[in-house]
Design a protein around this nucleic acid. Structure first.
Lengths: 192, 192
DNA sequence: AGCTACCTATCTATGAGTAGGTAAAACGCG
DNA sequence: CGCGTTTTACCTACTCATAGATAGGTAGCT
């Protein structure tokens, strides 16, 4: 089952806190209060905040990649895959108090150590690569038709998703996210 | 000309610092160092950080609205207007170390007082309203053709822009931004 | 005289991080 | 098996830096 060690509890909570408040607005104290161990004990698991941040992004990234694999084995049609992807993204919103961890850390980018930055870029790369793959197969099957390269189009789609999650949160309006999703379909069948 | 009072210097620097580092990762001390007055003196101009944050977002918003007006009087064609808008947005990137202030504060949303939140939402509303207006006139002139409502489409475009700025920064690659721009055109002529 | 635009000095809270201690579980070995 | 040694998983008690904010002072202009 899901391991419920203190370590994973710390990591899960860290992920959640960063998603809601950002890297610079959460502290070992916040974790301490919630988990019920002292801040010094958290340093036992994560010597520095950098370690924690890196592990949190790595975990999130890993989970995301697993979800992408599950989509791959669950459905085959490219359109369906993209729909599942957007559902996955909308799931991170969760009652409009969290945004994507990748998007959050991308915003905090200039205040973060290199090891975390690499994880963030890796997360972007993972997702864009997956979308690119889907787009390519969609083009081969002639269900998609667009002018840009699949790579560039994947970047645009992912940027749209990240931006839409952020705007959905500030307006407490999930429909903002779903509306953006619909326009993706338009994006992908644009050529005359 | 541009007023160069201490107040405006503070405000300009605050805007820049928030754009690069975020609301929770900049301090009165940073301003103090750069401007050359003590932190306590900054409280003379902005009693609380909330006041400063609110004023910074308000100033940025105002400047942006002025730029939008300038676009309106400079060019008439909807396609041209959108192109200018995207150039405006790309201008905020500036050597890939800053993102849009609105996008940054939208990420920091959950850690901010209400008065700033209102400004952020206002900024989003201003921009989306302007884009909506352009889209509508583009539809009337039959240069645009899409299925979604202009309002929803404007939301998507603005989300795409915000997301693209963020991703351009983390990869230090402005072309990421411009690529996303190109896909907007595709978005707007999608109907068969 | 009073306002403007600063200053010094200080407060309280919080940040990450370290030093060093300890009870209990796990481990190695004769 | 049992005894000593590590290791694990915490703790208390601190450090030092920084945060935003306040009190009260002052030089100079109006």
């Amino acid at each position: 089952m899901t391991e419920n060690t203190v370590l994973t509890k710390l990591l899960d909570l860290a992920v959640e806190l960063i998603q809601t408040r950002g890297y610079n607005a959460f502290s070992y104290r916040d974790l301490s209060r919630e988990i019920g161990i002292k801040t010094s004990s958290i340093h036992y698991y994560f010597p520095s905040k950098e370690d924690l941040g890196k592990a949190a992004m790595a975990r999130y990234r890993e989970n995301f990649n697993q979800s992408l694999s599950r989509i791959d084995s669950a459905v085959q049609a490219p359109t369906e895959k993209l729909m599942r992807f957007s559902e996955l993204a909308s799931g991170t919103l969760k009652s409009c108090d969290k945004i994507c961890l990748g998007g959050m850390l991308a915003s905090d980018f200039h205040t973060m150590p290199d090891s975390i930055r690499e994880q963030v870029r890796g997360f972007y790369n993972d997702n864009e690569a997956w979308i690119t793959k889907v787009l390519k197969s969609g083009c081969e099957q002639a269900v998609f038709n667009f002018e840009e390269t699949p790579e560039k189009m994947a970047q645009a789609i992912f940027a749209l998703l990240e931006g839409a999650i952020i705007s959905a949160r500030i307006f407490k309006d999930e429909s903002r996210f779903h509306a953006s999703m619909n326009s993706i379909n338009a994006l992908l069948t644009s050529k005359p």
